[in-house]
Design a protein around this nucleic acid. Structure first.
Lengths: 142, 142
DNA sequence: GTCAATGCAAATCCTTTGCATTCGG
DNA sequence: CCGAATGCAAAGGATTTGCATTGAC
């Protein structure tokens, strides 16, 4: 998995005349492997364990570039950016109790655009859908 | 409509032992009448036309309170807060060309929670759905 | 060698907050 | 009158940016 993403990043950066720096590589790898929705600060703290001299600015700059290259997705959590290294279409749920954001696997929502399209004169490109609810863990605790 | 919202605000603030100040009133009224999704700065500039001494801090403080009282909704636009004085359930579309956010009237989406619920162990409370597309005006221009 | 990327710190943008004063009920 | 709300300015948090130096190709 690590090797894959390194390969992937190398190709894509070269194609776009960017470079595949150690930092950029590490940032992407760490995000993907975390399987979480980290903000820049959290990712910075993880990455720093392997490369203590890295700066927060570098993390921000790289996340912006990786987003532009389509290698990570940005999601907002209370108006703050978080990053998602998972690229397949999926949705998120925010637990209103513990505030954790989790991936949600749902079929049959990919035609949302189709549902909407005929009713408006908008050309729908994609949708951002976030659910608010109570996660299984908090169910039990409440 | 103005009278309505004043009445409404008066009742609700009293019930919650808040007060119905001239500023609070004006802020709510101006937002509702604009029928737009304004950010605090934009609303501040509108409100200042009628009450030049009002401060931006007051606009922020009141928007937060009005949100808590359920009289306005907060929506995020590129991670920044915008406020919506329309309270009925509706969705928004963000035009990726002109960046305008517009209300979207769609039936048959209110059962989104029901679609999702059986597939997960989450208890869905509500959803935040935003569409990204191209608005009729930009269609023509492109 | 060239130009992109880094580390660092300062700057920016949006939003919140502290405080003395004013106003609503 | 009492406590909530205001205006003002300063502070706060997240993100971006300028610049000299380093590193990738």
């Amino acid at each position: 998995m690590t090797a894959e993403s390194i390969l992937n990043l190398g190709e894509i950066t070269t194609q776009n005349s960017y470079r595949c720096s150690k930092q950029r590589n590490l940032i992407l790898d760490t995000l993907v492997e975390s399987k979480k929705h980290l903000n820049a600060q959290e990712l910075y703290e993880l990455v720093r364990k392997k490369r203590p001299k890295i700066s927060l600015g570098t993390v921000y700059r790289n996340l912006n570039l990786l987003q532009k290259l389509g290698l990570v997705n940005t999601i907002y959590h209370h108006g703050k950016k978080r990053y998602d290294g998972r690229l397949e279409t999926h949705y998120h749920i925010l637990c209103v109790n513990c505030d954790e954001m989790t991936d949600l696997e749902v079929d049959g929502l990919s035609d949302l655009g189709i549902q909407v399209d005929p009713k408006t004169r908008f050309r729908i490109l994609e949708n951002g859908l976030i659910f608010f609810g109570i996660c299984p863990t908090c169910h039990i605790e409440l």
